[in-house]
């Protein structure tokens, strides 16, 4: 091909680089995509601020109102101080992560950008893998940072009432915050890839996360316990909890494994459909 006399000069052909598309480049490209839209910043700022703020607020309110607190609440604090620090922030923060995860994939379709993406990386499964890795790692890192920051903020706030120290017995609860958020983000990303519709996918994930996961508890009998335990977000959430819910049938790490398994199965389905469907 003509190089020196190209009409695209002053752009010389060699500037276009050489070599082949490999996975590292896809990772870099997906990282560029994620960091170059505002919704990422909005969601992550909401996550960080809400989580850290609540990690301070509720311990603070507890300390200030200690005398009026019910014996039950007082007992609960001594039993599970970390849950009192991270729990509230996690409930609001998970919403931000879920919505962002959905947007990472579904907004490619609503904007039509998926066409550009697939022209550049027609190996669709590799593209999905790159996207998944970049986003999951991002949430994992941010999740762990805010988990430990929030923990230290809460610990300082609680100092007059109870001293909370990290040890091998409870570090999982703090570490679990980032683990849970990262898996939830990936789960939401997959839901977005499956449904390819922002509003639909957000509805689906919110319904599962906030409504169905709770309503399942009302199903009586052993079936109810199974459904409750193996519902993906319930199964995953216990990685952050000191005590397992009464109707929970497996251990924290097993629960997290169940959540990961759900995510993996849906990921495989999303990859299959991505290859099969017209973009």
């Amino acid at each position: 091909m003509a190089a020196r006399d190209s009409v695209m000069t002053p752009i010389a052909t060699r500037d276009a680089g050489t070599g082949h598309a490999h996975f590292g480049r896809l990772l870099l490209a997906e990282w560029t995509k994620i960091r170059s839209v505002r919704s990422t910043y909005w969601s992550l700022i909401a996550l960080i601020i809400a989580f850290l703020f609540f990690s301070w607020l509720f311990p603070y309110l507890t300390v200030v109102n200690w005398k009026q607190a019910s014996p039950e609440q007082q007992a609960n604090l001594y039993l599970d101080p970390i849950g009192s620090i991270t729990g509230s922030g996690l409930f609001i923060g998970q919403l931000a992560v879920a919505v962002l995860g959905v947007m990472v994939t579904a907004s490619e379709y609503s904007t039509g950008m998926i066409r550009s993406t697939l022209l550049a990386s027609p190996h669709r499964v590799r593209m999905l893998a790159a996207k998944s890795i970049v986003f999951t790692l991002l949430i994992l890192v941010i999740g762990e940072v805010i988990a430990f920051l929030g923990f230290f903020i809460g610990r300082q706030t609680f100092k007059s009432l109870v001293s909370v120290d990290l040890n091998s017995g409870n570090v999982r609860e703090v570490f679990g915050v980032g683990l849970y958020l990262a898996m939830l983000g990936l789960f939401a990303l997959v839901v977005g890839a499956l449904l390819r519709h922002v509003a639909g996918a957000i509805t689906g994930i919110v319904a599962l996360l906030l409504v169905i996961s709770n309503l399942i508890q009302l199903i009586p009998g052993r079936i109810g316990k199974y459904l409750y335990t193996y519902e993906p977000t319930n199964a995953g959430f216990v990685i952050t909890a000191k005590r397992l819910p009464d109707n929970f049938l497996i251990s924290s790490w097993q629960g997290y494994g169940v959540f990961a398994l759900w995510t993996a199965v849906l990921w495989a389905l999303a990859a299959y459909l991505l290859v099969r469907r017209d973009a």
Binding site: F54, F58, L61, T62, Q73, F91, I92
Partner: peptide
Amino acid sequence: IITNFMPT
């Protein structure tokens, strides 16, 4: 859910 974490 969040207000559950508040003092009584």
